[in-house]
Nucleic acid binder design. Sequence first.
DNA 1: CGGCATTTTGACAATCGTCAATCAGTGTGG
DNA 2: CCACACTGATTGACGATTGTCAAAATGCCG
Lengths: 246, 246
Amino acid sequence: MPSPLISKLERGAYLNDEDRARLEKVVRHPRRVGARENLIHEGEAPSNVHLVLDGLACRYKVLANGRRQIIAFLIPGDFCDFHVAILGAMDHGIATLTPCTMVSIPAETILELTTYYPRISRAFWWSTLVDEAILREWLVNMGQRPADRQMAHALCELLVRFQTVGRATADSFGFPITQEEFGDALGLSVVHTNRSLQYLRQEGLITLAGGVMTVLDVDRLREFAGFKANYLHLTLLSNDGPGMAD
Amino acid sequence: MPSPLISKLERGAYLNDEDRARLEKVVRHPRRVGARENLIHEGEAPSNVHLVLDGLACRYKVLANGRRQIIAFLIPGDFCDFHVAILGAMDHGIATLTPCTMVSIPAETILELTTYYPRISRAFWWSTLVDEAILREWLVNMGQRPADRQMAHALCELLVRFQTVGRATADSFGFPITQEEFGDALGLSVVHTNRSLQYLRQEGLITLAGGVMTVLDVDRLREFAGFKANYLHLTLLSNDGPGMAD
DNA sequence: CGGCATTTTGACAATCGTCAATCAGTGTGG
DNA sequence: CCACACTGATTGACGATTGTCAAAATGCCG
């Protein structure tokens, strides 16, 4: 089973055997982190780059009034703080939502990879730019779609992203977070998050129980959400189709 | 007068005389574009990279229901489509809001710069990552702040960004766009945009007339908006202080 | 069983959008 | 010069969406 990082990168960039071998080596010494732990605080400048290998984490910012916005879901294969070496300090925090497996990659290793492995370097560029594209779509989602469609859109995205790293079946993925946390990502209150969720359930679009999100009708959910996957820039075919990992 | 690209990059990355000279050469043959013209459509894959030298443009997406979300303001020194060479196709459009001066940079030139000028390459990385950081802050802005504070926050950001490229005084900048356009950026209707604007005026925080936005009390506006400039990552001092260009 | 977090529900209030009308500014043709 | 059209700003009335508060229900775990 390839590491989720390689699965992801190969949906947007070409790697050869040497690249893959080098990347596999980077992922050698993972560590476990519990749910809801703060990994990195705003203002810090960690010297290692953190990569999610399993579980679900998030970027977030907390405002003076205590409100929290989750800015991104970090799923297996996602970097937490790839930018910090260049930007100097984190402008947001990183926390786990579920128990996670993570690796810390020394900054020098990243530097080595980007310097001596041009395809890996390009793949990292691709990954960074896709992260940005996802942010743009989230902004559209929050700005222009009503709560229920916004939620549907987020779920369509998560399904695809989990599939590209072998963490989802054709129509379901593990999503064991609270509605409050989900609401923080959508910019909604808990109550309204709950109502939107119920609407999707009642419409027969999804099921969410025991931490598993099942999309009952992928086409209809996409239609309802206005979801087009182009912004994820998954231009290359993956070697292995979707299927539950582990 | 340095090009706005150089002014901007030097707030986050070191360049030497050779770098600056090379970058100046890139900006040699600008062209004028009228207000409200579409420069690049979603789905296109332009072969040149476009750079704003003067004026105000935007990234945007239009939904099936006709609603438009402006995803970013592009000000002098900003790239419109730096990512397209790697991502393959635009996932959003680019349009001018005011008359603009632009340059088209051949993709090979960008490739040359990033290959043979390590400081420029790092500066472009910095710029890309700051764009991403701005998107994160916009997301927080839309998700967690009420309309008037959100608007105030956007204005604080624009003031700083215009200042870094010599397009603003200590408290004012040209902002000749319609309230509908501003609303599209904030995710608000025209009417509510107007009301939020009036609130800021009535509070004595800003003035907007004849296309000039003046911040009457920068500290109070920042306080009201909860604005902290750290996400812009302007870590280096610029050579020339703020001052109206031209 | 008893706590505790989480989900769910109801009632109500605040924010924000929509519709429609008015007002102000600008440019154009006669 | 004025009438006219047009765009953009502003206002009021109303409705829809979403947030807040508080309580009840559910589920989980010791």
